[in-house]
Nucleic acid binder design. Sequence first.
DNA 1: ATCCTACAATGGACATTGTCCAAGTCAAGC
DNA 2: GCTTGACTTGGACAATGTCCATTGTAGGAT
Lengths: 139, 139
Amino acid sequence: MSDLLERLRGRGWRMTAQRRVVAEVLDGDHVHLTADEVHARAVSRLPEISRATVYNTLGEMVSLGEVLEVSTDRRAKRYDPNAHRPHHHLVCARCGAIRDVHPAGNPLADLPTDERYGFMVSGVEVTYRGICPNCAATA
Amino acid sequence: MSDLLERLRGRGWRMTAQRRVVAEVLDGDHVHLTADEVHARAVSRLPEISRATVYNTLGEMVSLGEVLEVSTDRRAKRYDPNAHRPHHHLVCARCGAIRDVHPAGNPLADLPTDERYGFMVSGVEVTYRGICPNCAATA
DNA sequence: ATCCTACAATGGACATTGTCCAAGTCAAGC
DNA sequence: GCTTGACTTGGACAATGTCCATTGTAGGAT
């Protein structure tokens, strides 16, 4: 079942049909869906759910730290239910396919103090870009 | 003068007043301007330049590899004339300020083969996030 | 110097993604 | 089964960017 749903319930979230559906959609596929893709899938289970609700719900799950927002391109944000395992992303420049990756090394440690300009550095995102096997074959 | 302009001319670019202005604006400040900021500054030198032209011109400079597109947030793309010195970015989560940084280490080498899923990996972007001294002071 | 022509610029419509808000609805506690 | 405050709705709006038909022009040819 939905671990995500359990975690959210455990935080005193008011449970509604809409929120349940959004959580189930996200947790169902471990792909990186856009908000509108989530909406489309949610609609097929709960036809009257609105776009605004999907956006709100995703935003709340992100605030709670249960879902990650991923922006690998300038199009839509994508939502990653895999928030509790730190990881980075590998993106196909042609088709946009995304894979979670776990590089060795610690990029945070690689930023020397004199390159921090007094910032309190709290996080780092790494996005690898390339061509996926599929697209390479169809080149 | 404008090195960027020289490089572009050297590639057989057809030179127009609009393109010259865009290149000069970009090369003038080494900040990371959005397309609309470039447009605003371009207008003050060449009042009739259109938004579409600025977008087109920036896009062409990116295609030629003379300018980098930077997407540190989901708002507007930013344009970085510093395309020939590889670097990454440090972004203030509060005010959006951006600094170029040069971390040690090689993230590309940190991605093991068995985490590449058959992709031809060609590049990597690293975005550090934190709070800049200014925003930390005004917390 | 003038003309030609392919390439560039224009501006306005359109597309995509996302946010906001006032009004209606409902989950959960009493 | 009420009540109430939180949730949902749908549509307007905003920001960024793209597209396209029309008009203009840089730069080579004559």
